[in-house]
Design a binder for these strands. Sequence first.
DNA 1: TCCCTGTGCTTGCAAATGCAAACACACTGG
DNA 2: CCAGTGTGTTTGCATTTGCAAGCACAGGGA
Lengths: 160, 160
Amino acid sequence: MELPKVGSIGEYIRDQRKQAKISLRQLATQAGVSNPYLSQIERGLRKPSAEILNQIAKGLRISSQALYVQAGLIEDREPDSDVLAAIVADRTLTERQRQVLIDIYESFRKENRAEAQAGTERTAENARTEPAPQGVDAVPVEETETSSPNGRIQPEPKKG
Amino acid sequence: MELPKVGSIGEYIRDQRKQAKISLRQLATQAGVSNPYLSQIERGLRKPSAEILNQIAKGLRISSQALYVQAGLIEDREPDSDVLAAIVADRTLTERQRQVLIDIYESFRKENRAEAQAGTERTAENARTEPAPQGVDAVPVEETETSSPNGRIQPEPKKG
DNA sequence: TCCCTGTGCTTGCAAATGCAAACACACTGG
DNA sequence: CCAGTGTGTTTGCATTTGCAAGCACAGGGA
């Protein structure tokens, strides 16, 4: 019934493996999965779990996210973003802080996309050099040095 | 080393669900998974596939990547914060946007450092899993008028 | 020729996912 | 008191993952 996406992930893996010039068995060993299973995955006969996917990514020395995107498991809203990956991976942030950063970043992306749509020849490069169209101004930014946490951005209610 | 992660993802999901103030069944419906299965996932009795994880993330309105990280499926990336590097390198952001993100991120870092100093034995793990009294949806960056009823930051619905 | 090593593929089968149905418990009314 | 509704949990089962063992084919070397 549903196997359209599965095929693409397999092709992608086989592609990457060919590029790395390693055999199916070799990748299977490096990834810690069985050879026949990897074969089935590459041909789209099996839908690997995230764990297996992650191991394959490690074996291929490529980003796990790239595989997840290919598998259609992250296509969420953003195709891919190093900033998001870094934010998500940052263990020094609280969950709420993380979510705030993600929300803001995504809103920026969305806004830039909308900007690019509205303007005719407005590419991202062009927009980048522009000061700021509209909505960006609404965001809290003390253009003077580092804004103090006591200023406007107060993520933790911090009672007591 | 192979099982403690499974528990944490379940706790994380239950945590997020509680914060969203929705019932198990409700989340199960929104995520398109069965209630009993979600129950087992939250208690760490089952290890959900990436597909299910993705659906749960959608149901919770949180980033899929956040869940994958919790499930230990993405920490492949640099664990440390190259957030700043990623922000600086992101060519899709305007200078203003970039500065906003940097300011916010640094304020978070500073706040966390201060908190670690002031707090008792507050480890990073503790702070990370600490449930927010308000809930994630109530993003505390409200100085802009762009926060939607949803709680998500919606940048000015592009007007002509 | 036969044997050996390497490639990928097919075949059962244990173990796990994921769900429908039913259960236990608490709360609300009638 | 029992019926109805809400919560989360347990149980049994179809389906699937993922692997060990084996198959088919190709290329060397003796």
